[in-house]
């Protein structure tokens, strides 16, 4: 079990906290200690909006261990409106709403539960925007 790692990642997992460079303003996710654009090490925490579009998407039938209860599922690269592209699962989605360019928003879901007696990891997934 990865208590320490998942604890460290909670701000990113639950609130999509990345970092923003104080000199060139570039926003990164996950959090970085050095700006990939200008090399500055002056970065501060930045909470991303959770809105983005599907950049690429694929359907997963053979899941890694621990994800079997969720197959088949969509795995995507999501381009966030602030710029970063992140890898995430899609949820509550049908094939017709899982195409490149479709708008998605962040939700928090159970990603993995370690057995019946281990910790439950909650983290971001993306879902189609709720119809108005």
């Amino acid at each position: 079990m990865h208590f320490a790692r998942s604890w460290r990642q909670q701000a990113a997992n639950l609130r999509l906290v990345g970092s923003q460079c104080t000199s060139c303003k570039k926003i990164s996710f996950p959090e970085r200690i050095r700006c990939t654009q200008c090399g500055s090490t002056e970065l501060k925490d930045h909470r991303l909006s959770g809105r983005g579009t599907i950049f690429t998407v694929t359907r997963v039938f053979e899941a890694p261990r621990g994800f079997g209860s969720q197959v088949p599922y969509f795995a995507a690269l999501v381009e966030l409106e602030e710029g970063p592209i992140i890898c995430a699962m899609l949820t509550d989605v049908d094939q017709k709403d899982a195409s490149v360019g479709d708008k998605v928003t962040m939700v928090t879901r159970r990603i993995i539960a370690h057995g019946d007696d281990g910790p439950i990891i909650y983290a971001y997934k993306f879902t189609p925007e709720l119809e108005g």
């Binding site: 969720q70 949820t91 509550d92 939700v107 928090t108 879901r109 159970r110 990603i111 439950i120 909650y122």
Partner: peptide, 13 residues
């Protein structure tokens, strides 16, 4: 609830 939902995820949303 979907396979990745529980009381916590419902409460969060």
């Amino acid at each position: 609830p979907g396979p990745d939902e529980d009381t916590t995820t419902i409460a969060i949303q």
